[in-house]
Design a protein around this nucleic acid. Structure first.
Lengths: 345, 345
DNA sequence: GTTAGCACTCAATCAGGTCGAGTGCTAATC
DNA sequence: GATTAGCACTCGACCTGATTGAGTGCTAAC
């Protein structure tokens, strides 16, 4: 057992060192910096074993060793030491959660910017509302031109959606007003996913003059389907260029190109499961372009039903400890902010 | 005059060739590919003159010549030949203007993506409404919780803005409804910039029960100030990495970092003056990080008062002819789309 | 089991040499 | 006077071979 413990420690030392330097680490480095009781030769033997076990790779014969993805997996699952944040870092993160920020958009953008600047990785922040939880709170039709009006839907969580309706026949502003009032009352509390259906049903029992409007609404109402992405922001894409793993411009290009594709980012963030944190390493991300990257995601359920998912993207040798500390600090600050918001009714 | 004409032609040939290859161009290349009547020695003499005049730079003694920013300026102002687009390109641009796209957001994103993929440069698209032109069309208060409600402002151009209001005292949903109705009628047509002021005035003449709401609105109403940016999208940032001028990762990083800063992009696009197109070369962009870039902007006034500004960002040796052709095709398609939209009432 | 010692490997670095694209100048030509 | 051929010169790019040093793997001794 003692031996195994030693192998463990050596592997951990190698990973720690590699995360720090991005340079293949040799036996001598370990013996000097981490395990002074052992000679480099001993370390070499252990390293040789670790390589055979699949935890280390050697770029070539006379370079040091580099941790494999399997090693990172073990590292994240078992070896992770929390990296405490500095006072400044904590304060900075806190300061980003200003309860007066109203727009979801602005909130996600700020968080993405802040997280990328604290971690020096790329940050992606997404706020979505699971479709099942969205209910109509209020509905309003606003005239825009003679045959065109704006349909505004407000959900119970305070989100606002808007659709332009093209009408078959002109309708007077006052009538739109009446329709809004009636429908608003009838449909309050209706889940968004069933809205279209409800409207169709209502349309048949509506006086001719209004039927056109109501069926136009039924058409434009959001279809049942995936969740609603209320907001997505990515910050610090260019941060990744600092890391030697992307000094190859072609690699960098293909990675940055992925990070420009909204759908792929949403995909990456949506893989997040039930647990609070998730770490995906290299190929586990599921994207060929990201096989040298890791993504750490965290998900927070806000009180109004919205779900906030954060992803930090960096090289596989990213500072997992620090990243997780940052994310849990974010979770804490987020909680405090929401409490404060609800506490000042 | 004939001499001057020849210098002109040679300079143009040099710029054309450099734009194509990004390699310093030598006298022999010009004499073979562009001016077969002249020997390389003659070209050399001319090039020497052009260098003295400030139109050419030589990276070192035995390399060819490279156009200076002054040369690009002349090229853009006087030498530009329109580069006709291929049928596919035209079709592709047209196809991006689907009149059924409703959201401004989606429109700008699509345009940015399309333009960057046609040109292989970075595209930034901004839609803004000059503050002076925005007038209130409709106003609605929607209850969210007991002491909190949502203020929705719809402008005559159909834009929707929302603010959360925190109220001093609780107010019943029905009362919010009444207030909305009255204020909507009183304030319809009021320029947004004066809204806050108007509301303050109205507040004093309002029954006590409602005064709280009205003054809360006055506080949150958009202050007079700069224009409203309804939407900003950037596409194809990673395209720039393909160009040899950014094979230096540090350069690339500082440029991409600028292209991630919303404010700087808005700044770049806002410099656009009265004319339809504007080309800013190198230092003319006003940003140190962009001293090796050019930006071509185009601005289109939409029928509802909004202004759409497009910027294409590339290396100073960008294909100005092609870029301008693309932008004017965009202008045309945009016009067609709007016409179509208004023609189907 | 641990370690000292040694042969071996291989990328990185440097110096020297060659190549070729390009210039600038001069003298001859049109 | 403009044009051009010719030539010396420059300088980066590229290739080559030698050197260095970090690192390994193996073996034999402790």
């Amino acid at each position: 057992m003692d031996l195994i413990d030693r192998k463990y420690r050596i592997l951990q030392a190698i990973i720690d060192d590699y995360i720090l330097t991005a340079l293949p680490v040799g036996s001598r480095t370990i013996s000097r910096k981490y395990e002074q009781k052992l000679s480099s030769a001993t370390i070499r033997n252990e390293m040789s074993d670790l390589e055979e076990l699949g935890y280390l790779d050697s770029p070539h014969t006379s370079a040091g060793r580099v941790p494999s993805n399997k090693a990172y997996r073990l590292y994240v699952d078992r070896m992770l030491r929390p990296a405490p944040l500095s006072v400044e870092e904590t304060a900075f993160i806190r300061s980003c959660f200003d309860s007066r920020v109203q727009q979801v958009e602005e909130m996600t953008t700020r968080m993405a910017k802040a997280l990328s600047s604290v971690t020096h990785y790329t940050a992606a922040v997404m706020t979505r509302t699971p479709r099942a939880e969205q209910r109509l709170s209020h509905l309003q039709l606003v005239p825009v031109s003679e045959r065109r009006c704006l349909l505004i839907l407000v959900t119970t969580s305070g989100a606002v959606r808007q659709h332009i309706l093209d009408l078959d026949a002109p309708i007077a502003p006052d009538e739109l007003y009446t329709v809004s009032r009636v429908l608003s009352q009838k449909l309050a509390g209706c889940p968004l996913s069933q809205l279209s259906e409800e409207l169709s049903t209502l349309a048949s029992g509506t006086p001719d003059a209004f039927r056109g409007v109501v069926s136009a609404m039924a058409q434009e109402a959001p279809p049942a389907g995936q969740d609603d992405i209320s907001s997505l922001a990515v910050g610090g894409r260019s941060n990744l260029l600092s890391y030697p793993e992307y000094s190859d411009v072609d690699k960098a290009k293909s990675l940055l190109s992925v990070l420009e594709t909204k759908e792929k980012i949403v995909g990456l963030l949506s893989q997040h499961g039930e647990m609070e944190f998730s770490v995906r390493i290299g190929p586990e991300t599921g994207l060929e372009e990201m096989k040298d990257c890791s993504i750490v995601t965290a998900s927070y359920r806000l009180s109004d039903g919205r779900v906030n998912t954060i992803g930090l993207i960096g090289p596989t040798r990213m500072q997992y400890g620090k990243v997780l500390s940052v994310l849990s600090q974010v979770g804490q600050s987020l909680g405090e902010m929401l409490e404060e918001q609800n506490g000042q009714p």
